[in-house]
């Protein structure tokens, strides 16, 4: 049964991707890519990757759609040119050739799900055994993410931080030229979009009431995902995205300005840096206690308790940074005037 379901989802994904490339309307393409992400999340779940499915659903289908729509209101929604036929033929030729090559290569890949392949025999059994003995938290993914590969995750957090800083810098510039080669229709779209972003959905009673009802639950679920990450699917990355989604929902309902009054930009900037600093500070504290950088075992008398403390704190750091960065990016797009 799972096989049929998997094939069904994969086929739908290919169809959705084709539709995304085909459509000339960027709004439609963005909504379709949200659907694509949701299908991808379902597929990840079928492939036993519950943590990844949660991340993809929260980020791919939720946050990324909002960010793309925010960018679209600033850039316009129509794709103006079809690619020329020569261009298309050349591109199709290249693409077809590479597809055939990759498909040819797949025949040499180890069989799907075979437990004897090198991938499954190398470090994975060691991770699973050591997690049970030395770290003692049920979720192996969190253990690998936060403890075994703590350096790696620290690096990723700094990449996320850097991207957030980059956005803030990019949007701190004011445009030099003010050219307006716009058609009338485009400016109409712009004005309605501005009304929506400025005031939120304040005039729409039903979404507002239901949204208000839901926001506390979304925040609660975010915190659950954050602190239950040791025991079930979840962790800082997913929780950050979910909490950011709750605040974004608030901004959509009540308007950009009110959301910024709830969490001002300086708090967000502080969160961006603070989470990353918290993460690194754990590493430094470990060094002060005669351990290696990010060796959590020295944090408490009992090494296992030390690991638990370290993982909880660095996951909190990850969550804070991700929330701060995603919200800063959202505000940067939503608060930008259209020039």
């Amino acid at each position: 049964m799972t096989i049929i379901f998997g094939v069904f989802l994969l086929t739908l994904m290919v169809i959705t991707a084709l539709a995304i490339v085909h459509t000339q309307h960027l709004f439609v393409a963005v909504i379709l890519s949200g659907i694509f992400s949701l299908l991808m999340a379902a597929n990840f779940f079928l492939l036993d990757a519950a943590d990844v499915a949660l991340t993809e659903a929260a980020i791919g289908a939720g946050i990324s759609t909002v960010l793309f729509l925010g960018a679209l209101t600033l850039t316009g929604e129509a794709e103006r040119y079809r690619s020329s036929s020569v261009n298309r033929v050349v591109a199709l030729g290249v693409v077809a050739a590479i597809t055939l090559m990759v498909i040819y290569a797949t025949f040499d890949k180890p069989a799907f799900g075979d437990p004897q392949t090198p991938v499954q025999q190398h470090v994975a059994p060691w991770y699973i055994d050591t997690t049970a003995n030395d770290i003692d938290i049920p979720n192996v993914v969190t253990a690998v993410l936060a403890s075994f590969r703590g350096y790696d995750t620290l690096g990723e957090v700094f990449v996320v931080l850097t991207a957030g800083i980059g956005i803030l810098f990019l949007f701190s510039a004011t445009p030099t030229r003010r050219k307006k080669p716009q058609t009338e229709q485009e400016s109409e779209v712009e004005s309605t979009a501005e009304i929506k972003f400025g005031e939120g959905l304040r005039h729409f009673l039903i979404p507002q009431v239901v949204g208000r009802l839901l926001i506390p639950f979304i925040l609660l679920f975010g915190l659950y995902v954050q602190f239950h990450g040791d025991y079930g699917p979840g962790g800082g990355f997913q929780a950050g995205a979910i909490i950011a989604a709750a605040i974004i929902l608030y901004a959509l309902l009540e308007g950009e300005a009110r959301a910024l009054r709830v969490i001002p930009q300086w708090v967000l900037t502080g969160m961006m840096a603070g989470g990353a600093i918290l993460y690194s500070a754990v590493g430094v504290v470990c060094m002060m206690l005669d351990g290696n950088f990010l060796e959590y075992s020295v944090l408490a008398a009992d090494p296992i308790t030390g690991q638990h403390i370290g993982i909880i704190v660095i996951e909190a750091g990850v969550g804070i940074t991700v929330t701060g960065v995603l919200l800063s990016i959202f505000h940067a797009f939503a608060g930008r005037r259209r020039f």
């Binding site: 729409f204 039903i206 979404p207 009802l213 639950f217």
Partner: peptide, 21 residues
Amino acid sequence: LFLLITSPTATNALASAALLA
């Protein structure tokens, strides 16, 4: 429970957005 709250709301929001457009 949450589906029963959110999906009619989403449909309503969609319809009013279309009417507005």
